[in-house]
Nucleic acid binder design. Structure first.
Lengths: 357, 357
DNA sequence: CTGAAAGCGCTTACAG
DNA sequence: CTGAAAGCGCTTACAG
């Protein structure tokens, strides 16, 4: 009444070289359940140190690595975090990515790369990433005004943290990690003031960018503190890119009339814009910093190699990535809004800023 | 004799809003197996068009997305590809990443970010990524001489393709996708020759880089075709970075004696090196292109914004990413060695190159 | 505290 | 061709 004999080898033998928990348990002569508990450091386990060691040794000897699919299916988590960026080519966000990646790795998690546009426009990608249990949470690069509501919708089903941008009003369940923007531009402005500049212009980010607004606030407040102001005619909006910076500078300079006063220094909304400003100014025959000083937000490796090297203020981008991941891993359901004021912005004074002529 | 009643709701009801295949099958009034087959477009299915539609409609109506962990556990694949890069901050490799990411998405796969150093030095990461069924395959950024054997070892257990570098001798089971390096530098050299330069120098990559060697080959062959040569004293090695380029230029220029001949043009091993060369030359008081022309391999968005803008040749980086993913997805076990000669390199002549003075 | 058993949600031989 | 059932490899209530 035993039925046909079971094909034991097919059940027991590791397939394709994959060692299973059952193999470890057999080698250590304990039950699968106990092996699982020891390996997962279950505090309730009271097995003797000797037994525990037998399990650990067996796992090591066999090179056991848990099957992640099986584990995920059981515990309903998969150790993956979606990192959804808008523009992979920006060196600014890479530092953030590095920080996030390293922190995830430290927690045995990995980062899955997503694209903002694809996430928001491609329904398949959206479904898989958001509803498909693909990732345990999402880190979304902020600053996309049009998508505020969509991100809020995503956050309802999946822990989500927006990085590098303050959350919008409708995103009440969205966590965020943002740097202290006004502090950065305040520092830049004070640097220019200390050099003797009294009229400072701004090539800002896009008109509807909250980040851009906060950076402007820092400038206005630093100027206000010494009785100066940011004149409307000294400010233009631009894309967060070198092309934007170029266009912004050209627009700004077109307002300058020979013989009349104009700003002696410009702040760029970010260092990509700064690169564009530097290039455009040179092509218009202006010398930097003799004719105009230029300073920008965000420091990357490029800035010191530019001619002239670009003065910047660095924000804790890497830390933002770290904190975002930590937030997702430790408090996925808390809608926390973190403004990183530590470490504080750091000024990198370089050749692009000098006293006015 | 029925035992206690089963808690039906706990079994049937979707948990946490997750719709299961069983829910779709129930809604469409078919078996789970048939629902699975219809949804996976099993060609053996002969169900009436009407039945098929019922399944598809039910899935759509319920917003069904397969549980990826369950599916992975069954089919022993998880739709993830590890992208292991060395230096996330290089804009050069980002284009490759973008191509890989997009191609993966087109195949319902995602990219998991890894770090070369971590993979090779951190045993935990290695085990999880390589042995843990985390990813279906690995794309590794090439050019790490020290790790040739290690990558060969990885490829024995996991489909692996090295991108942007030719495979090393010991990597017999490793696939690779590399651009046509000599074609790129040949094009750059011919551009400089056509401007009238007859003595051309090279700030190459690291001494042991195969990529660097191939790029040098292109220069040598283009020079040889017109009876010229690359003089040993006109070549230095450098890291693949702006800092490397700076150091390389300084070393090269230190060999130049006033009143004697020196190269009138320099080729940079890549555009990061090129940025460093540009900056260092300017800081030594040399005008580019008047005193020396500079051209580099790889085009990125930065180059046109530099002052002067940097002449480059672009290689099909994005396509490399695409092909690498396609290779992994369609022929994971073939150890293919692809040299992408299509699309061919494209010259971007800019302000950093001009006829010699 | 530990083990046997159930079950996570799928796919796919297998039998009909 | 289709359905019932087994099973992928884990974790964890549950009972002992």
């Amino acid at each position: 009444m035993d039925g046909p004999p079971l094909p034991e080898r097919a059940i027991r033998a590791p397939r394709g070289g994959a060692v299973r928990l059952a193999d470890v348990a057999a080698a250590a002569e304990v039950s699968i359940a106990l092996a699982s508990r020891v390996l997962n450091a279950d505090p309730a386990v009271r097995a003797s140190a000797e037994t525990r060691k037998r399990v650990l040794d067996a796992a090591a000897a066999l090179g056991y690595v848990p099957n992640i699919a099986a584990k995920s299916l059981r515990i309903r988590r998969n150790g993956l975090i979606g990192l959804v960026v808008h523009d992979l080519s920006s060196p600014i966000h890479l530092e953030l990515m590095q920080g996030a990646r390293a922190e995830a790795a430290a927690h045995n998690s990995f980062l899955v790369l997503g694209d903002v546009d694809e996430l928001l426009n491609d329904d398949d990608v959206f479904k898989v990433l958001v509803n498909g249990n693909r990732v345990d949470g999402l880190i979304v690069q902020g600053g996309h005004a049009e998508f505020g509501q969509r991100i809020a919708d995503i956050a309802r089903v999946l822990p989500t943290v927006v990085v590098n941008a303050p959350p919008r009003a409708e995103q009440d369940r969205v966590s965020s990690v943002a740097p202290d923007e006004p502090a950065a531009t305040r520092m830049l402005t004070e640097h220019l003031l200390s050099l003797g500049h009294t009229r400072i212009g701004l090539v800002s980010g896009p008109r509807d960018s909250m980040t851009g607004r906060l950076r402007e606030e820092g400038i206005v407040s630093a100027l206000g503190a010494v009785g100066l102001e940011l004149r409307p005619e000294d400010r233009v909006h631009a894309d967060w890119s070198a092309n934007g910076g170029r266009a912004g500078f050209i627009e700004l300079a077109s307002r300058w009339r020979a013989g009349t006063e104009r700003p002696t220094a410009l702040i760029a909304g970010n260092s990509l814009i700064g690169i564009g400003v530097l290039g455009a100014a040179a092509r218009q025959g202006l010398s930097i910093p003799q004719d105009v000083s230029v300073a920008a937000v965000h420091d990357t490796w490029i800035n010191e190699h530019l001619v002239p090297s670009l003065t910047t203020v660095s924000l804790p981008l890497r830390e933002m990535g770290v904190v975002a991941v930590r937030q997702l891993l430790t408090a996925p359901d808390a809608a926390s809004r973190i403004v990183l004021s530590e470490p504080p912005p750091v000024l990198h004074a370089r050749d692009s800023t000098a006293p006015p002529a």
